[in-house]
Amino acid sequence: MKSFEYVRASGIADAQDTAGRIIAGGTNLIDLMKHQIETPPRLVDVTRLDMTEIEQSAHSLRIGALVTNSDLAAHDTVRRDYPVLSRALLAGASGQLRNKATTGGNLLQRTRCPYFYDTTQPCNKRVPGSGCPAKEGINRILAVLGTSPHCIATHPSDMAVAMRALDARVEIESPNRGTEMLTLDEMYVLPGDDPSKETVLEAGDLITAVHLPQPPKGKQTYRKVRDRSSYAFALVSVAGIVDVEDGKITEAALAFGGLAPRPWRDGTVEDVLVGEAPSDALFDKAADVLLQDAQGFGENDFKIPLARRTLKAVLAELTGVTQ
C-alpha cells in the first residue's frame, strides 16, 4: 500500500476535502489500496460523523450514509415495509463485511472486473485510454447492457439494485453545489468515452444519506443468481415490486443487478406490464423489451437467457402466475 496522510473528519466541512479520498467502512477501498489500484495521498475518515441514524417521517425513510449494511438489513421498518432492500442487503457479501460496509460506501464501491483488479493489464477505468481486454477476454461476470466500446464492467452492489427499484434518492453535500438529491440514474453515469468516471460526484462531494419514498404498494422480492449459494457477486439479480389489483398489474418497478455498469432500470419494461393481466406470455414480452439491446461478449452470453428466466420467475412469484 502506498503511504498516505490520515485525517479524521470531525464535521462535514472536514469531509469536503477536494484533495482527500473519503473512507468509511473501507471494505472495498482498503482492498483497492492494497492492490495499488487506488493510491490516495490523503484519506479522510468520516466514520465519526453523525450520519448513523435511520429516521422515519410521514413521507420518507432517511438512511444516514454511515448506517451499516447489517443495521439497515435488520431495521424493523426496512424488514416490514421495504423487504426488497433487506433481502438485497442480506444477499450481499458476508456477515463480517456487512458489519463494516456502509450505505454510502456500498453505493460507491467499484467494479470487480478482473482487468480492473489486475494492474499488469490495460483497463480504461483504471488507466484511461489503455484499452479494454475484457471484451475479448475473461468476461463471464461482466455486462450485457449499457456497455460502451471502452468498458463492459458491472456494478457489483445488491443494495443499490433494490434502492433503484424503490426510487431512492441520494442526499449529497457538495462544497460547490450545496445539498443535492439525486436518483441513482442521475448519480451513476454510463461508461461512454470515459469509464473512469462512474458518478457525477466531484472531489469534495459527500453522500450524507439515502432517502426512500413511502413504501410502495404490492409485493416485493429480490432474486439473486450466483456461482455459489452465499458470499458471491450476482451473475443476474432482479429487484421486483409489483402490485396486482382485479387481475391486472397496476404498478411495477423492476431493477437489475449483474447486467450493467449501474443498477439497471428500464421504464419501458414496466410499461409492458402495467395495465395487463399477468401471464407467461406477457412476462416474455417484458423480457424481450429488457433484452432487445443486450450484447454478450462470449463468456457472458449466458446472462441474456438467464436474465429472461430470472425476470420471469420474479414476475411469476410476485403475481402468483404459475409458470
Binding site: T27, D31, L97
Partner: peptide, 27 residues
Amino acid sequence: CDHGQCGACTMLVNGRRINGCLSLAVM
C-alpha cells in the same frame, strides 16, 4: 487472503465481527 475473502482474520470490534485485514487500525 488479506483481502476480506477468507475470514481467517475475523475479530470482534465493539462486539461485532469484522475482517481485521480490511480495517485500518487508526480508524
